[in-house]
Design a protein around this nucleic acid. Structure first.
Length: 624
DNA sequence: GCAAGGTC
């Protein structure tokens, strides 16, 4: 029997082949440079020893597009909602497909080893379609699908021996997503390019695109920008109080439990009432043990947020660096949503690889030899395909490029922090009565730094030392006054915040969030603005106009907010759960998008006018 | 020339 196995990418194919082949694997080149074919034998239940070829694709095998007679100048954009869609291979995909066609010809069985997620299921389906071209005996019914989430010996052999079938519902869901994204993206993009025709002819703006992820991403940036613009500072008043004990070197600041009052008179009246008393009384002292928790195991989104915050790397740069480190075999697969380590991953073995490292070897040695190892926390997310990002090999930092160095060091330190104990300390909160008002002061003493020693990105410092107070103690006032202040405006959005917003609202995936941000920069909808060593995202005239224009048209379902994309995601889930069919969802969503599209067509002048008036306000030429 | 999703 001949079994053809196909993984989503070469690294997985190689890993699985090495496990199943038990070290006896022949490697051969394929028709595509990033794909290798691995030959070995494996004993499948009921089939006995089989000749296996393990190969892979490199992501999707096919793309979608409209036939050439539905090109830019052939049809009005609205027709794209019903236009036929063709499946096409890019030149690289053709090379990958050729390899599969060749290998499938004499295969008795096809076994799919793509990632166990929705897209992976669809890629499996694409592989089957290609394999059937040379071997029609291969069908959905007799194709095996391996279920696995990481490259570990017993897990992979179990997956090889217990295949299931491809999930046709997941295939349908992905098909639906692809079709909707293409139709809506192309229709709105072509239409918008038309609206801005005059400005595009003069090369003042280039492509004006719409995408179900691009627009909500832009919406987040513009939203914050407008909040900053429209911010009106508010005055507030509060009472600050200081107490100094004779034996203490410094007075202790107490803050008013009421916080801020936005009415000056009220604050003054309360203050004057209190002032009739020149002493205060300690109401209570509470001491608690407190902890600063070590971070959760590292996901892609967290990596990108952290690298943006700590190293000013863009989401794309940090993912690229992580990708390189992965290809070189230093870290695990960098695209993951999983934030808990699988139980069978040998963490101490991974740690011990770093015992001699120049930068953190001593820390690792004490972690292992002095019994300081602590099990990582377990988050609630699991993408069922990949473990959290962690180092798989040790390398000295000076052997890496600048960004790789930063990202690798972060990944290792994060991993070491995960395997260390939480930091702990004592926090004291003192409550004081002054007349009828309450005030509080608190202090922190860090007792054991633990993971903080290897994770400099978290700060937790011992604060002001509180003098020893006793309950009921009467203390003299050192100072008491009404202070005034103004509320401060929010800041423009940072990339860290944007990533968090996209993640929370289901805009893009861990692998694409960075690309969407790059895309709206490339489209000149937003710019990066560096101020005081921080990078902020600020919309351009075009970006603001688009969001404002679309918003003033008052669509039933806003295209600049995440709602529609979220709705699509939940409808796709319903396809997966067989609560709805692909046709139902497609129809429902096309109806929604078409309603928006025809309203945008009807009021397209509003979008252009918004842009023109912004140009006028900024002293720029307006084309007629 | 258009999207978003995989991957190198």
């Amino acid at each position: 029997m001949k079994i053809l196995c196909v993984a989503e990418k070469n690294s997985i194919g190689k890993g699985v082949a090495n496990i199943l082949g038990g070290g006896r694997v022949r490697t051969k080149d394929s028709t595509y440079k990033y794909v290798k074919n691995y030959e070995f034998t494996f004993n499948f239940p009921h089939l006995g020893n089989c000749d296996v070829v393990m190969t892979s694709v490199a992501g999707h095998l096919t793309g979608n597009d409209f036939p050439s007679n539905f090109g830019w100048n052939n049809v009005v954009p609205g027709r794209l909602f019903e236009a036929p869609i063709e499946e096409v291979h890019s030149p690289d995909q053709k090379k990958v497909a050729k390899n599969i066609e060749t290998l499938a010809r004499d295969a008795d069985k096809l076994m799919i080893w793509t990632d166990c997620d929705r897209e992976g299921e669809y890629i499996g389906y694409e592989i089957l379609q290609v394999a059937r071209r040379t071997n029609p005996r291969l069908t959905l019914e007799n194709t095996w699908r391996a279920q696995f989430s990481h490259l570990e010996y017993s897990h992979i052999t179990h997956a090889a021996k217990n295949p299931i079938k491809l999930d046709e519902n997941a295939v349908d869901a992905v098909k639906t997503r692809m079709e909707l994204d293409l139709r809506t993206g192309a229709a709105f993009t072509r239409f918008l390019c038309g609206i801005f025709g005059k400005y595009r002819d003069k090369k003042i703006i280039s492509t004006v695109s719409y995408g179900s992820c691009q627009f909500p991403t832009l919406g987040f940036v513009v939203d914050r920008y407008k909040r900053v613009l429209n911010f009106k500072p508010e005055e507030f008043w509060s009472i600050e109080l200081q107490v100094k004990k004779d034996d203490a070197p410094k007075p202790v600041k107490f803050t008013w439990k009421r916080g801020r009052l936005y009415d000056r008179m009220s604050a003054v009246v309360i203050y004057e009432y209190c002032m009739r008393q020149t002493t205060a009384t300690i109401r209570s002292i509470e001491s608690n043990q407190t902890y600063k928790y070590k971070p959760l195991p590292l996901t892609t989104v967290q990596l990108q947020k952290s690298c943006s915050l700590y190293f000013k790397l863009s989401a794309k740069q940090s993912l690229e660096a992580a990708e390189k480190l992965y290809q070189k075999g230093f870290v695990s697969y960098p695209r993951t949503e999983t934030d808990s380590f699988p139980n069978n991953l040998n963490l101490t073995e991974l740690l011990s690889k770093h015992k001699d490292h120049r930068t953190w070897g001593n820390y690792v040695t004490s972690l292992l030899d002095e019994n300081k190892f602590s099990d990582p926390r377990k988050g609630k997310h699991d993408d069922k395909a990949h473990p959290p990002i962690h180092p798989v090999a040790s390398i000295e930092l000076d052997r890496l490029t600048l960004n790789e160095k930063k990202v690798y060091e972060f990944i290792v330190r994060h991993f070491l922090a995960c395997c260390s104990a939480d930091a702990c300390g004592d926090s004291t909160t003192v409550i004081l009565d002054w007349s009828k008002e309450q005030f509080t002061a608190s202090g922190l003493m860090v007792r054991e730094r633990n993971y903080l020693d290897i994770y400099p990105y978290h700060k937790w410092e011992t604060s002001q030392a509180l003098p020893r107070f006793t309950r009921g103690e009467v203390v003299p006032l050192h100072m008491a006054e009404v202070k005034d202040g103004k509320t401060s405006p929010p800041q423009y959005l940072t990339e860290t915040e944007l990533i968090a917003l996209m993640d929370a609202n289901g805009i893009g995936t861990d692998a694409t969030i960075a690309e969407h941000i790059e895309k709206i920069i490339a489209r000149e909808y937003i710019n990066k603005d560096v101020k005081r060593n921080k990078t902020f995202l600020v919309p351009t005239l075009l970006g603001i106009s688009l969001v404002e224009g679309f918003e003033s048209i008052e669509l039933q379902n806003s295209l600049t907010k995440p709602f529609l994309r979220k709705l699509l995601e939940s409808e796709l889930d319903e396809i997966c759960q067989q609560k709805k069919t692909r046709e139902q969802v497609l129809h429902e969503m096309v109806v929604l998008y078409k309603a928006s599209f025809s309203k945008v067509c009807q009021f397209h002048q509003v979008i252009l006018n918004t842009y023109q008036s912004y140009r006028r306000d900024n002293g720029q030429d307006v084309l007629n």
